[in-house]
Design a protein around this nucleic acid. Sequence first.
DNA 1: GAAGTTTTTGATAATGTTTGCCGACACCAT
DNA 2: ATGGTGTCGGCAAACATTATCAAAAACTTC
Lengths: 142, 142
Amino acid sequence: MSSKELQVLEDYIQQNNLKITRQRRAVLNAFLECEKHVSAEELYRIVTQKDPKIGLATVYRTLSLLTHSQLASELDFGDGQKRYEHRYMHSHHDHMICTECGKIIEFNHPLIEKFQEEVASRNGFTITSHKLDIFGLCSECR
Amino acid sequence: MSSKELQVLEDYIQQNNLKITRQRRAVLNAFLECEKHVSAEELYRIVTQKDPKIGLATVYRTLSLLTHSQLASELDFGDGQKRYEHRYMHSHHDHMICTECGKIIEFNHPLIEKFQEEVASRNGFTITSHKLDIFGLCSECR
DNA sequence: GAAGTTTTTGATAATGTTTGCCGACACCAT
DNA sequence: ATGGTGTCGGCAAACATTATCAAAAACTTC
């Protein structure tokens, strides 16, 4: 199941002299089956339903692995905990967050990206990453 | 000295049945004299140089007051602590943060703002706030 | 301006997320 | 089996921020 992502993780693991373990596979599978934008705590609850012996620290450590192997992106909407979303075969996008129900809409606007580059180069600034978060009310909560 | 901002704070305080105190005035003055984008800890160090008896909790509480009275904006660049910048008589802007030296460049691009509105209304989304952070290297650190 | 009411203060404890630590454990090659 | 390396789980520690609470200050009313 979803062997492409597992292959990516195994490649990264082998390139860094790490080891493939039952726990890492479990966290990866739970992450892949999961809805997007999970927090570490949420993922921990999901994983321990299938395998109660997995520790919270292992979830954090594996999420770090997933981030470094480009399978996951780390998000921070400023509510005190980080979230993670699928990154493999997903293109860059920004987020609209409904502050009422928590729904997250992903979007991408090529011209916004382009003008960011423009503003940066006008200031002699080299972009390594950027994030645009829009907060408000979704159509159902308005 | 900068009586306009003090007046704004006093108005807010009176409208909410709060009280004007020596400590609140001290934190406000330190904030106003300070360079932009201060953290609570930094502001605490500045305030206690003039008035060593002021507690850290009071700085946090007063920063919350300043934020609610629209004198300050709360910023979160994802480095684990919040920062505060002047808001009174300052227009909205976004930030470019140099990950090497910490320098922050403020900018505003009307078209970026406009396209955000466009994307939001296309999704039936009502914007209450938004933030665009660009991370990278400034011209001196490149 | 004194008494009474309400809010604020400072010190410290508590919170909540994330990371560090450590002895036990799994895996692989010899 | 044995040794070596990396990982695990449980818990302690780190960190910024918030809650708690008795004492102090600020405002109100007379």
